[in-house]
């Protein structure tokens, strides 16, 4: 019996990587063969961005165990910081510029995460959720009142009203409530795929490490974890900031795949949408988040034939799925099914 024995966790991790790579290969092939419809091709980058968002929120909700209702706020910070960076940085190569913009987006979102996290992570449960909601609203208000322009002297910013006087040849990048217009679309499906893979590597390594175990111990029982000497704030903050940085990079990816972005794109509804991906996919289950995010991003498109009714159908599907997955009879049925399989396995040995 020299078969390589892998723990269940690493088998799941490898299966997740394999799933993402296979999906990328198939979609890339279909795109090359021209089978993919134009709307579908347009959806590829947003799907990657939402998958990345779902993974990042799953780190907060599933691994750290704190409910965040303002995750779109970090996406917003990343989107605007990244888009400004992409417009301002004099890097001729598009992939490099995208990478630099994503790094900038992740950095700014991580800063925002730390800024919010330090005071806020002392709260627990629903109160933390409300504060993240409030934070998301504040970010939206701030971005809506921010004006950024660039000319030969460098970047200029103005708050509340547009007081920028740019030199000749200057460019207005962020125009308050109008957002950023005429974005150079440099995000590609490959970049999105790489970002998702990178996030998966980080999350799986984190979860498998000593740090990850400390974070999950906090989730399972904060008082017990504290009493064995785990510094609560440090680990909570670490997970929160990492999740924020990932959301920032995802925001940049999303923004650089659009013509126009405005602050209202990243409002409370977006935060909720991402939370829906995480809950439907299963808390702490990364492959679940990926599938849920991808399917639910396509679903409104797929429901096109229902036209006006599509969001209604979406809502009904959401409620029914929640009712079905939490139905004790169905749950009992599935656990008994799995148990039978396990018994068979045991008998086979």
């Amino acid at each position: 019996m020299n078969k390589l024995h892998l723990s269940k966790a690493s088998r799941v991790n490898f299966a997740t990587y394999a799933m993402v790579i296979a999906a990328y290969a198939v979609l890339q092939f279909m795109g090359g063969a021209g089978i993919l419809s134009a709307t579908m091709r347009g959806q590829l980058v947003p799907i990657c961005a939402y998958v990345a968002m779902a993974l990042s929120l799953n780190l907060t909700v599933g691994v750290l165990g704190e409910l965040s209702l303002g995750h779109a706020g970090f996406m917003s910070v990343g989107a605007f910081a990244g888009a400004v960076a992409a417009a301002a940085l004099p890097i001729p190569s598009a992939p490099l510029r995208l990478a630099a913009a994503m790094a900038a987006g992740a950095l700014f979102a991580a800063l925002a995460g730390a800024l919010v996290g330090v005071p806020v992570l002392r709260l627990n449960g629903d109160y933390l959720a409300i504060v993240t909601l409030a934070f998301g609203q504040i970010i939206k208000s701030i971005v809506e009142n921010l004006y950024i322009g660039m000319d030969s002297r460098g970047l200029h910013t103005s708050f509340l009203e547009n007081r920028l006087t740019l030199r000749e040849g200057g460019l207005m990048i962020l125009n308050g409530p109008m957002g950023i217009n005429g974005i150079n679309k440099i995000s590609t499906f490959t970049a999105g795929f790489l970002l998702v893979m990178l996030i998966l590597v980080v999350i799986f390594h984190l979860v498998g490490s000593r740090t990850g175990r400390a974070i999950m111990a906090l989730r399972d029982n904060r008082i017990a974890a504290e009493s064995v000497g785990i510094p609560v704030t440090k680990y909570k903050l670490m997970a929160f900031v990492i999740a924020a940085a990932m959301a920032g990079a995802a925001g940049t990816l999303f923004a650089l795949g659009q013509n126009t972005i405005t602050a209202s794109k990243f409002d409370f509804n977006t935060s909720i949408l991402i939370l829906v991906f995480v809950v439907l996919g299963g808390q702490g289950r990364m492959w679940g988040s990926i599938i849920a995010a991808a399917l639910l991003t396509i679903l409104p498109e797929a429901l096109r034939e229902f036209a006006d009714y599509r969001m209604l159908v979406y809502a009904v599907v959401l409620i029914l799925v929640m009712l079905a997955t939490n139905n004790p009879t169905l749950q009992g049925f599935f656990t008994s099914l799995f148990r039978k399989n396990k018994r068979k396995e045991a008998a086979g040995k």
Partner: peptide, 15 residues
């Protein structure tokens, strides 16, 4: 779980 109820409430809100 309270999260499941929260998501259902959001579904009702959309509905």
């Amino acid at each position: 779980s309270s999260l499941a109820v929260l998501i259902t409430a959001i579904g009702v809100s959309y509905l």
